[in-house]
Design a protein around this nucleic acid. Structure first.
Lengths: 212, 212, 212, 212
DNA sequence: TATGAATGAGCGTTCATTCAT
DNA sequence: TATGAATGAACGCTCATTCAT
């Protein structure tokens, strides 16, 4: 058995890694609930079922715990995005929709939304977090989108050149559902998947679907 | 001179109000820079050029200072939005574009973006802040947008029914520029105004503007 | 009208004295309820219906207010005791009983008990308070009691020489009712007057009053 | 060595208990010297040779420290009283005198007097302290005294029925010596033991001891 | 290695005192 | 003279971090 995240790792190193993982999970919960400054190391320890001092065996201090937490969790996420590369010859919508759909889903289901909120909340204190994410993910993604958009514009798949000039707009449904989910979901739930579909129809011109 | 917000107010009440305003301004700076928990009341006082105790003459405690800060600043903003009501008979784009343009501007120029970041960061600790904004602004705005969108769809002004089903999408350029501005502006500045224009062209079908 | 403690004094000096008296009364209430350290000058001011600063026109600081309070209130009390001097030729019980009775009454009705509690509570911080009272009242009273007791012992009025050797014992019923009143009155009310009578009967040997 | 209250306890639990005890002792000193409100937690810590935070490991807050202090110290005292029960068939004076003598001694030697002063001083703020003591000690003691007094009255041991009607009077010498000790001992020391003897002689009618 | 008791710097809040009006 | 807004020293309590076991 090589999967150390599963229950009961037998080896010494495995035990240590599992403990570290448990601490990171607990830290994610606590930091999400309270923010960096208000989260208490003791509560992280309790949630991870370790002693307070144990955390300091794996992490230099609270700040390092936070930074490694963001790094590792964003890292997982980046890996998942990396595997979902568009295939050559595929239409842009076919390439982009599954990724966006996964993003919008995970924003809710996984902790990505909480993570993003955390990064936004602490962007003043930890400016390098955003930089890391920009260099690793956003910059490359924007270049890829711009290229896809130019091709799609040439083939007529795109009705507007908006995405060529502002590839950031591909993230519009993600941005809207993230903000709505964070701030207003309690008062007015949103069908994220349908919103994403409607937006893509708008962008890719599927006007026949819902005639006036 | 009756303008008490200007320098050197003469009356006692004027002085007190000016001091309160200075505290709120200082609090906005400090809370934005550090977040609620990490901001120090003493720093707010120093920045407002008052003694620590003076803050407690106007605000029950740090939490009250924070809440009244958000309320008063969001309040100003809400007032400004209220005055910008769409005129009957006007086309939807004409009604909506100035408001969005003002929003996108103020997100940067005024402190609205910072404020929003603060609300997001502390939405866990102060859930009623989001509720206040939803009831006062968002709910009404969404209803107005949905109505406008239905009419615009009938007149053919809108190319898609996306905004009828998801009026939230009207906020897409605001959401995108807010998130981009908060997280990535330092690495890749964004022409907010042009992005807004491109998005509206996409939504209102001004395809002729930038032919392929 | 020369009684400045009555309502609406007309003269300037009278107004000032009345104000000072009101502050002392208010201070008595507040210090009794909370003790010296926990009583707030602002609350004294509010109770006296003056501004906080006004107190500092009459008293150097909180400590001075406290000391003058004790002095003036104990002074009143001492004056009342002074007027109740035993008459020559009178039996000891006749000389002593009215004074004790008045003391036991005022312990409850007037604020003497509270005052005493205050002096006890703050005897560590203000040792000179007890000294003042000892020199002015207790020392002289003890000498008087001892002299009376010697005479009463000679005439057979006293059954025991306890009071000759320990004139302090004349205060026993006052001490008992004070402590009981302060600590246990709520749980078991005490008939102070009857207790005083029983004690005097015991001391003066009125055994016939309640035969076995 | 199993006596953990002695110097240098070896076990972890022993150390903790010793530390707690040291804090209570230090708190007794500080609270007695300054009263509850004016005593500083930091001074308690310094006197106990621990850090400020250490106190909060054993006590929820300053108020809890005070209450547990009174409870534990009064508790010790109550235990000592409990063991000194009157034997059946014994004369009342024989039953009562040793207890009173111990009380009068400890009032001075042990910290009982200080403790009592503290309870009186803070009886306004902590009314439940007096109640605890009343229920645990005073109520039962008064009943026992009243019963003993009735028997002693029947056998002729008591010359007066004062103690039957007011068993509180058994505490008279304790009350007198406590108040004298607190307020006037510095100016005129009192032979507590002799005063107690004189009072008991008075009550139990040993008039022959000191003929006029 | 893991623990959690101990530490003490740091912060929110109070309130005696001052002083401009 | 009287006021009460302003001050800032002081104190209760928290919690990140250390270290003896």
């Amino acid at each position: 058995m090589t999967d150390e995240t599963a229950a009961e790792p037998a080896t010494r190193a495995g035990k240590k890694a599992a403990r570290r993982e448990a601490i990171l999970e607990a830290a994610l919960d606590e930091f999400c609930e309270r923010g960096f400054a208000a989260a208490r190391v003791e509560d992280v320890a309790r949630r991870a079922a370790v002693a307070k001092g144990t955390i300091y065996l794996s992490f230099k201090d609270k700040q390092a715990l936070f930074q490694e937490l963001i790094r590792s969790k964003l890292g997982e996420h980046v890996l998942r995005l990396e595997t979902a590369r568009p295939q050559p010859g595929q239409a842009m919508r076919g390439a982009v929709e599954p990724i966006l759909r996964a993003l919008v889903e995970e924003l809710q289901a996984a902790r990505i939304g909480d993570l993003l909120r955390l990064v936004i909340a602490e962007s003043g204190r930890f400016p390098e977090l955003a930089e890391f994410y920009y260099r690793e993910v956003i910059e490359r993604a924007m270049n890829a989108i711009a290229r896809l958009a130019r091709e799609a514009r040439a083939t007529g798949e795109l009705v507007s050149d908006a995405l060529v000039r502002f590839p950031q707009l591909i993230g519009a449904p993600v941005a809207v559902t993230f903000l709505w989910g964070t701030l207003f979901e309690r008062f007015a739930p949103l069908d994220r998947s349908a919103l994403l579909g409607a937006y893509l129809d708008l962008v890719f011109g599927s006007v026949t679907e819902n005639p006036p």
